[in-house]
Design a protein around this nucleic acid. Structure first.
Lengths: 197, 197, 197, 197
DNA sequence: CATGAATGAGCTTTCATTCAT
DNA sequence: CATGAATGAAAGCTCATTCAT
């Protein structure tokens, strides 16, 4: 379905991601760094992209899809709504364990606010809609809330979890552990949106 | 308590804010633009700051305090917990009404993620702690949740409200109005944290 | 006599001419544009030419010969000296009617000043020598002037005609029409060089 | 009358002229070369000009005025029409003696064809109009020719003289000396335009 | 103190040329 | 032979920083 990427383009995309995971600010990446990391000549980037800007936008768009697809696969294995949400938090945990704080900040900037990332299909928000839809089909969710609001609420809980976990990596002292916060957040979702049996 | 700012420094801070409100990315602001808007010489900025970086950091820190103080004043007039939260949403509304979408995105990036802004005292999070404390004193809040979590949950609801309102300004089609979302969010806070009478 | 050109080479030459007639500066033509217009691969140009420079020089040289040959054919049909000169002006008119002002400027630069074009045999100056020789054979020309000078004077009149006609295409306001100027110039040649009968 | 140039701008203009007189093609001059020759930093050029293009155009425009003014001064000392024309040829001689052939070619390209140079006031053509006007006032010129044509004819003779003199510096073998050609050209002007007494 | 002209390191981008296929 | 993807030297341009005034 997906047309195969040129190996040079893929190398460039990967180089952008590696720099991102090193915690570099996207807009401050140099073309020379990207091409060097990609193991190709500087001019080659301009064979495939009109400008540095275009390269960055396309690379981020690509990763979003890659990540969304891999998340989709993982999440589709889960049965119910809360199980799926739980799995989503597991995914967040495994991502946060692997990458630097600075990288997470940059990625959050991109995913929560960047118009580049947010408005595209395959965005993380779309994932949330499909989770909600699954919950609807299973008859698990209260009918009083529109999908829009449930998706938004889920996104907010994710935001809470990530920002708390990140602040823990920081020098701010907190009383709760991320695991406790996670419990609170999951319970909050359960109480607000699940039919109580 | 607060030492009075040099008029040049204040002019520089104001210039940074004006540019921010025009929707400019903070990192892309030029020293020449800032000093020009401040009505002072370019070299003068370097009499007061070691580098552009320092100027920006200090300016943002300053505004945060200014805004926090003015919010504090407004919020301290409110009686109970929910009244105060309500008032906080009103403040958000009035801010969002006044500024451009791009500016709001940039400010959210700064306030939700920037370590510069988040780790300083007087940060918006501190506001939330004092709101929670007020609720505690009034005996309105459930005792089962630690302050940390309630603050985080409030921050998440704010994030939800702002990001939804911003997406409405965008081309994304949504079913709910921001006002409806606000109602849902406030009710969600009420249900989760208030003692039910 | 003329060895037949390789079809690739001819395509390259034609591509250069087309770009020239579009008004492009010769030195600013890109190899990629030339080969693309020629419908061949970029590398192929380097099978036939050492460098872009050589390609351009050879291409211009080629056109000069082509144009000179076609002019020669046209002019050889004319009987006397003034008839031939008249015919030469007709040729100039037909060329100027067909091409853009910018192209004419570039071509004049090349033909009047470029050492590349001027020093080659078959150059337009050679044409003028053969016109003068024809006039000599017909006994029409005054004997007091050396050929060199008459040729130069003819070139100057051509220059005058072309530069006036071109300035007319420009925004400069002139009193005389090109046709009037042509009349003056032809008469000037007649008076200066023809035996008065 | 003329506002004084900033010393940096003047240094840049002079650097452009020096490079021109070394025979360099105008469009191939590098900003780094120009600023180096001007003895200033590369960035400084961009304090005064938007782009390299603008710098070059302005520099050429400036020289044209400088040269035209100095020619004007010289020519105004001459009495009659032919004396003035003679003086103009002397000026051409002194210029051609001082500079390289390549420089002369480049300057001719600019002065005879470049729209940049031709359409500005103070252009060499304007000089010719004032020479013709002087001849008119002195009652020396035949009344049958419009000014436009006389000016054009003078420009053509200048073109002839310069291009012949330049070709002499080249490898082309000619019979006439430039001095002889000059004699022929001056006589041609005399015969065509002066009232015969 | 205040200035802004001057700077140049460093960035993006171009494009003639090469060479593996 | 023909190709065009890959290259990187070299160019134009930016802008944070300095410093003589």
């Amino acid at each position: 379905m997906e047309e195969k990427l040129s190996p040079k383009v893929e190398a460039l995309y990967k180089a952008v991601m590696e720099l991102l995971l090193e915690g570099r600010e996207v807009r401050k990446m140099k073309v020379s760094e990207i091409t060097e990391k990609a193991g190709i000549g500087k001019g080659t980037a301009y064979e495939y992209f009109e400008s540095k800007e275009e390269l960055l936008v396309d690379a981020l768009d690509y990763f979003q899809k890659i990540w969304a697809d891999s998340a989709q696969e993982e999440l589709s294995r889960c049965g119910g709504f809360m199980e799926t949400v739980n799995c989503l938090f597991d995914l967040l945990d495994s991502v946060m364990k692997r990458i630097k704080r600075e990288a997470m900040v940059e990625i959050c900037n991109l995913f929560f606010f960047s118009p580049i990332v947010r408005k595209e299909k395959g965005c993380i928000v779309i994932q949330l809609y499909s989770i909600v839809e699954k919950g609807r089909r299973g008859g698990e969710l209260k009918e009083e809330f529109p999908d829009d609001y449930i998706v938004l609420a889920l996104a907010g809980r994710i935001f809470d979890y990530v920002s708390y976990s990140m602040s823990i990596k920081n020098d701010i002292k907190n009383i709760c552990t991320p695991a406790q916060i996670r419990e609170y957040l999951l319970n909050s979702i359960r109480m607000e949106f699940l039919k109580q049996t």
